[in-house]
Every structure is written in C-alpha cells, then in structure tokens.
Lab assay of single mutants.
Amino acid sequence: STAGKIFRAMYDYMAADADEVSFKDGDAIINVQAIDEGWMYGTVQRTGRTGMLPANYVEAI
C-alpha cells in the first residue's frame, strides 16, 4: 500500500497530459495512490499540484 508514504522524484518529468503533474528530480510527492502498474496519483509538495505521475520516476522514502 502507498497510503501515508512519501515518494521522491528520481528524475524530472514534464506532464504530457492535462491530468498529469510535472515535477523535478528530488521533489517530494505526497498523498500518493497507486492507480495501476505504471501510474500513481499524488501531490507534488513543492507546487501543490495534484495529478497522475509515472510510477517508475519516483521511489518511496
């Protein structure tokens, strides 16, 4: 389960779609929910934006 875990971005990511979020390497991602194998839903702490993000760009900390 991803509940209550904080994730950290390992790479920069530029949102490719309106429902995705952009983030930079080192950003903390909070309130994360796993959607499926490849995608998560969460909030980028630095920007306050919430949306979909690729699971392979982040790691649990």
Rank of each mutant, 00 (worst) to 15 (best):
D36C: 12
A9G: 04
K5D: 09
A34V: 12
V21I: 09
F23R: 01
A60Q: 12
D27N: 03
A9E: 02
I35L: 14
A28M: 15
I35K: 11
V32A: 12
A16K: 15
E20C: 08
T43A: 00
G51K: 04
M14D: 13
I61M: 13
G4N: 11
G4R: 08
K5P: 12
G42S: 00
E37S: 12
V58A: 04
I35Q: 07
S1T: 07
P54S: 04
Y57M: 14
G48H: 10
G26E: 01
D27Q: 02
K24V: 11
I30K: 06
I6Q: 12
V58I: 12
M40E: 01
F23Y: 01
Q45T: 07
E59C: 07
Y11C: 12
G38P: 06
A55D: 03
G38N: 15
A16S: 13
D36T: 13
I29L: 10
I6F: 11
D36V: 06
V44A: 04
V44G: 06
I6V: 14
N31H: 00
K5R: 09
A3F: 12
D17W: 00
R46C: 01
D19N: 10
I30T: 11
V44I: 10
V21K: 05
A18W: 06
A34F: 10
A34Q: 15
Q45M: 10
E59N: 07
K24I: 08
T47P: 03
E20V: 00
A15R: 04
G38A: 14
I61D: 12
Q33F: 11
Y57A: 14
D19A: 09
I6E: 12
Y13M: 01
T50F: 03
E37M: 07
Y13V: 01
G48Y: 03
A15Q: 08
W39A: 05
P54M: 06
E59Y: 00
K24Q: 13
E37K: 09
F7Y: 15
Y57N: 03
V44R: 01
T50A: 11
G48L: 02
E37W: 06
I35G: 08
L53Y: 05
S22T: 13
A34I: 15
K24S: 10
G4F: 07
G26K: 04
A18P: 09
E20A: 05
D17M: 01
A55M: 04
K5F: 13
V32W: 03
A34W: 11
D36H: 10
I30G: 06
G51Q: 01
V32F: 12
N56C: 09
Q45S: 09
V21R: 02
A18L: 10
D27H: 00
Q45W: 08
G38D: 14
W39P: 05
N31T: 01
N56D: 08
M10Q: 06
F7D: 07
A28L: 15
V44S: 04
A9C: 08
L53R: 01
Q33L: 09
M14V: 15
I30M: 08
A3L: 05
Y11F: 07
Y11H: 15
G42Q: 08
T43S: 04
A60E: 15
D25G: 13
T50L: 00
V58H: 07
V21E: 04
E20M: 01
A55P: 04
F23N: 05
M40N: 04
K5V: 14
G48C: 05
W39V: 07
E59D: 01
T43R: 04
M40H: 11
Y13R: 05
D17T: 05
I35V: 13
G4S: 10
D36M: 06
Y41Q: 11
A60G: 09
A3S: 14
G51D: 02
Y57E: 07
R46Q: 05
G48D: 08
M10T: 12
A55F: 02
D12N: 09
K5E: 13
P54V: 02
N31K: 06
M14C: 14
I29D: 01
E59A: 08
M52A: 08
G42R: 01
K24M: 10
Y57T: 09
I29A: 03
P54N: 12
T43V: 02
D19Y: 09
A28T: 15
I29C: 01
A16F: 10
E37V: 12
D36G: 12
D25H: 14
I35H: 09
V44L: 03
V44E: 05
G42E: 02
T50M: 09
Y11L: 09
G38W: 09
A28Q: 13
A60L: 12
E20P: 03
I29Q: 00
N56I: 03
D27E: 07
I35A: 11
V32S: 07
P54R: 10
A15G: 08
F23D: 03
I61A: 13
Y41S: 13
I6M: 14
R49V: 09
D25C: 15
K24Y: 10
I6D: 08
G38T: 11
A55G: 06
K24G: 02
G38L: 11
N31D: 10
A16L: 13
A3K: 11
D25E: 15
D27V: 01
A60K: 10
G4A: 07
I6H: 12
M14Y: 13
Y57V: 05
A15V: 02
A16V: 12
K5L: 12
M52T: 05
E59K: 13
D17K: 13
A28I: 15
V32P: 05
Y41N: 10
L53T: 02
D36A: 10
A15M: 02
A9T: 05
L53M: 11
E37D: 09
A55T: 07
D25P: 10
G42C: 03
N31Y: 02
N31G: 11
